[in-house]
Computed example of a mutant assay.
Amino acid sequence: MMVANEDVQVAPTRGRPATLSADGIVDVALKLLDAHPKDELSMAKIARELSVSPPALYRYFPTRTSLLNAMSAAVFADFPEMPADRSWREQLLAWQNDVAAVYERHHGVMMLMGWDDQLAGPWLKVQMPVLTLLHSIGFSRLSLVETTSWFLAATVGLIRTYLAADSDGLSRSDLIEFSEGLGGLTDAQRMLVEETREWISRGDPARILNLGFEALVDGVERRLGSLQAKGHI
């Protein structure tokens, strides 16, 4: 899903609408993306929402990339710094929770991390503290690249899967309906599903997500210990 840089033949409005601004366009574009993260976000759609013609938007954002960059910058502008007074484990956990908080505010944030096979600059800036921290505790060269790439991808994947950010309205895994899939299970498996169903709604979503985060940080620590034991660090 990408913002289409369309050549829509619409007669331009006379003059520049007094209420139109770059910030206003970005705000409306983000609201549309968050409300319908699966739909194509076109310049024409944004223009209709603002009651202007598409050419009016191009005065502020001449390309699709320029608008996406502005949207990405707005979403990640206030991303918190890592708490330097905590252990490296606690810093990674804080970073993961801050990314989850961005997902909860902006359900369409996934597409603002990169497009056209390019990583978005604002998202790269958000990732840099993780790269820097892992380097500071001993990872370097290939081990740094591999561990950082795995940690970042696994964190984003876990958040996206658990928070179901692509759905219309945030839905968590504790709301999943199982009945359609029961037919292919054994009697013992069906009984286990029924037993599990009773407890799903009692789980604390924040605790469940953090269990996943802790498992990923544990993986970083195991990888660090393994490299140290082999004398690679």
Rank of each mutant, 00 (worst) to 15 (best):
I233P: 00
L175R: 12
M191E: 10
L92C: 09
E198S: 07
L170P: 05
D174G: 01
S143P: 01
L50Y: 08
D98A: 15
W150E: 08
E81G: 13
R207V: 10
E194V: 05
R160F: 03
H36L: 02
A120L: 05
S143A: 09
H106R: 09
S87C: 07
V8R: 10
A77D: 14
G121F: 04
V126P: 06
V26D: 03
A94V: 14
F178Y: 12
P129F: 04
A18V: 13
F213D: 13
L133C: 08
S42K: 02
W88Y: 15
V99A: 12
L112F: 14
L41E: 02
A153W: 07
P55R: 13
V3A: 05
A22Q: 11
R86F: 00
D78V: 05
L216Y: 03
A77R: 14
P17D: 09
K125T: 13
L93E: 09
S72K: 06
V10L: 06
L92Q: 13
L192P: 00
P12W: 02
D98E: 14
F178D: 12
F151K: 00
S136E: 09
L57A: 12
R48N: 12
V217M: 02
D116H: 15
T196V: 02
M128V: 02
D7W: 10
G181T: 05
S53W: 06
K230Y: 01
A101M: 06
L170K: 03
D168R: 11
P122G: 11
T147G: 07
T65L: 04
L134H: 04
G219D: 13
R48I: 08
A44L: 09
H232P: 00
M1N: 11
L209V: 05
G157E: 08
A100F: 02
S66D: 04
V10K: 09
N97V: 02
R160G: 08
L124E: 08
I233L: 15
A4N: 10
A77S: 10
T65E: 15
A4D: 11
Y60N: 07
E194R: 03
L112P: 04
L30K: 10
K38S: 04
P83H: 14
L20M: 01
A154Q: 11
L32I: 10
A73S: 11
Y58A: 01
V8A: 12
L41R: 12
G15C: 09
W88S: 14
E104H: 06
K31E: 15
M113L: 15
M191T: 05
D174H: 02
R172S: 07
G219A: 06
D116G: 15
G114A: 09
L209E: 03
I176V: 15
V99I: 15
A47M: 04
L50I: 13
L209F: 00
W150L: 06
I200P: 01
E104L: 01
A11M: 12
A84F: 00
P205M: 05
L50T: 14
L124W: 08
V52I: 12
D23P: 07
A120S: 07
E198N: 11
E90G: 10
S179P: 00
R16Y: 04
D23C: 00
L152G: 03
D98H: 13
L182C: 01
A44Y: 10
L163D: 04
A4I: 08
L30H: 04
D27L: 05
L175N: 06
K45P: 08
I25H: 13
F151A: 13
L192M: 06
Q189V: 00
P37E: 03
